[in-house]
Amino acid sequence: MNRIPPLLVLAALGLGACQTPPAPPPRATARPAGPPASPVQGAWSFGIVGDRCTARVTHRDVALDVTAGPGRRASLGVTAPGQALPVNGRFTMAFQGGSGWQLAGRTDAQRKAAATLALDDAGQGRLRDLLGGGTLRLRGAGVSAPPLILPDAGVSGRDWYGCVARLTENEAADPAR
């Protein structure tokens, strides 16, 4: 059996002593606030999928998904590539258009922001506001997604709103649904 030369052992020990200790795991910190991102303008698309009315405003840097139904609830989801939204954080969704309003929401582990909206008169009014056009901003720690400009959804959006209205009509006619 070959013996390891003592000089080689010493050299290895010396090299090991020169290594720096491993870096501590990075702490989850909010990204430093940079200059505010410029607003970007999205484009609407609409659909009816089963008992849900779906709408989407897309831009490569941020997208808004609106899903109304089933029942008298709607969800507003915002996604953005990269780390423009934090993990498991809180945020405020602020819209300014025909009228202004705010919603509180949370992001999940996949950095998707979500807020819910009851489809009562006020909630329906807010959906109409979105369809009428304006600017949607997310505010909160770690949020760097740019404001999203929603164009007037036009006749397509007003047609789609009929789908939303039917949800509430159906629910009123048959609350057990």
């Binding site: 036009g154 397509s156 959006g157």
Partner: peptide, 15 residues
Amino acid sequence: LGLLEGAAPRPGAIE
């Protein structure tokens, strides 16, 4: 005949 601006409406839409 209205102009198509933004998202196209579905066929059959009349405003």
